[in-house]
């Protein structure tokens, strides 16, 4: 489906926010100087895409993400999820069952006393009958490969397992999209790999739309599309390959390119003819081997 999540001229300001909550729809136009965390975002995310969002701390990434399932409502502009305006109070649960969120700290988002109870939490809230619930839990745990741990107490899980448990709770609700807000930031290398492999699988096999916010550039290389935000403004909306080819743009936004891309950049600066759009280790190794063979180094 086209325009699964549609941002129409979306701005968000943390100033005066309480006032707006009070009277629901009637939004007062803000006058004078207002700091916007997100400024006039205007783009769409399509069904089945794997989109990475990058930007320095405080650039507005998380704010933008939180508007995707009505955790935050835009100060100006409109966010449409599957055609539904997120301002629509009556359909807010409809929106949240379509778009699930995973946050940074796994310990802040687990509520159950065992893995299966935690996965059941969302289903209980919407009153799913027991039979159906068991089915959905089985499916979710199988998808994230936590069947063996189903009766384990969540605090005994590793970081990667905890995040997978959180993702299972979302999968059980059969969402169309999962938004991960720096969900890999606290994980060790193996935990990160587990989560990345899982979201790639969900994207490819279950056609779930993925929005992944991260500071790890090697994870960005895995996405179909990357959105770079700085100071609340969308600076680039392109493929990881194109974004990382522009080393200066990335550096000026307070970020870095993957190390393998940086190596290619350095070699090019030294006048060596290597492509600049290398973003994965595998591609880089092939290029270097060619180069070393041709250069007569072996």
């Amino acid at each position: 489906m086209k325009n699964f999540i549609r941002f129409e001229n979306v701005s968000y300001s943390y100033d005066d926010n309480e006032e707006e909550y009070g009277d629901g729809k009637s939004q007062t136009k803000t006058v004078g100087h207002v700091d916007y965390a997100v400024k006039k975002a205007d783009f769409s995310i399509e069904k089945g895409e794997f989109v990475a969002i990058v930007g320095r701390n405080g650039s507005g990434k998380s704010t933008l993400a939180r508007t995707m399932n009505a955790l935050l409502l835009p100060t100006e502009g409109t966010v449409l999820v599957n055609g539904i305006d997120t301002q629509n109070d009556e359909l807010i649960w409809e929106i949240r069952s379509r778009v699930g969120m995973v946050f940074q700290n796994p310990d802040n988002q687990i509520v159950g006393t065992s893995v299966e109870e935690d996965v059941a939490f969302g289903l209980e809230n919407i009153g799913v009958p027991r039979e159906k619930m068991l089915e959905k839990i089985d499916f979710a745990l199988e998808t994230v490969k936590l069947q063996k741990e189903r009766r384990t107490e969540p605090h005994l899980l590793s970081g990667g397992q905890k995040q997978r448990c959180a993702i299972a709770g979302i999968i059980a609700m059969q969402p169309e999209c999962i938004v991960l807000d720096e969900a890999t930031a606290m994980l060790d290398p193996i935990g990160r790999r587990e989560v990345i492999n899982l979201i790639k699988k969900l994207n490819k096999e279950n056609n779930i739309t993925i929005v992944h916010i991260t500071h790890h550039m090697d994870e960005v290389s895995q996405a179909d599309r990357v959105i770079l935000i700085d100071n609340g403004i969308v600076l680039a909306d392109t493929t990881p390959r194109k974004l990382f080819s522009d080393v200066n743009l990335v550096k000026n936004a307070g970020l870095e390119v993957p190390q393998i891309t940086a190596l290619m950049y350095n070699l090019r600066q030294k006048g060596i003819d290597v492509p600049q759009d290398i973003i994965t280790e595998e591609e880089g190794i092939l290029v270097l081997i060619e180069l070393l063979k041709k250069g007569g180094a072996c």
Partner: peptide, 8 residues
Amino acid sequence: AGLDPAGR
């Protein structure tokens, strides 16, 4: 942890 590359 959680900082952008420049902060890191």
